[in-house]
């Protein structure tokens, strides 16, 4: 195996995540897309940690930190989404429109 397929996988995942986060209308899908972007970075880190010029374990440790942080981020995200849903009765991006310009 070489490094390139892993980087390509990471890039594809990041691209899909960014596209989803910017275009999807359901806020839960948007949160999932953001998770995909974070995981793309994790794939990169683990791949680099194995295939780097001087392989070391730093990248894998970094990825573990990121997984924990991403969990915290999505927990807060769902909590805020819940509070938004209680007030507006909707989880649609188009309803996030009280304030403009």
């Amino acid at each position: 195996m070489a490094l390139q397929p892993f980087l390509a996988l990471g890039a594809i995942l990041f691209g899909i995540g960014l596209y989803g986060a910017l275009t999807k209308r359901n806020l839960i899908i948007v949160l999932i897309s953001v998770e995909m972007m974070l995981n793309a970075a994790n794939i990169n880190l683990v791949a680099f940690s194995h295939f780097a010029v001087t392989p070391n374990v730093d990248g894998q440790v970094y990825a573990l930190f990121n997984i924990a942080i991403a969990a915290a981020e999505v927990a807060v995200g769902l909590a805020i989404l819940l509070s938004f849903f209680r007030i507006r009765n909707s989880s649609d991006v188009r309803d996030v429109n009280l304030m403009k310009w």
């Binding site: 990471g10 990041f14 995540g17 960014l18 986060a21 910017l22 806020l27 948007v30 949160l31 953001v34 972007m37 974070l38 793309a40 970075a41 990169n44 990121n66 981020e73 807060v76 995200g77 805020i80 989404l81 509070s83 938004f84 007030i87 507006r88 996030v96 009280l98 304030m99």
Partner: peptide, 20 residues
């Protein structure tokens, strides 16, 4: 709530970009 949601989504996309 709306401000928090906007900040959360934009901010976490930004965090993901920095991490990548």
């Amino acid at each position: 709530a709306e401000g928090g949601l906007k900040y959360l989504i934009i901010g976490s996309i930004a965090s993901a970009c920095i991490l990548y």
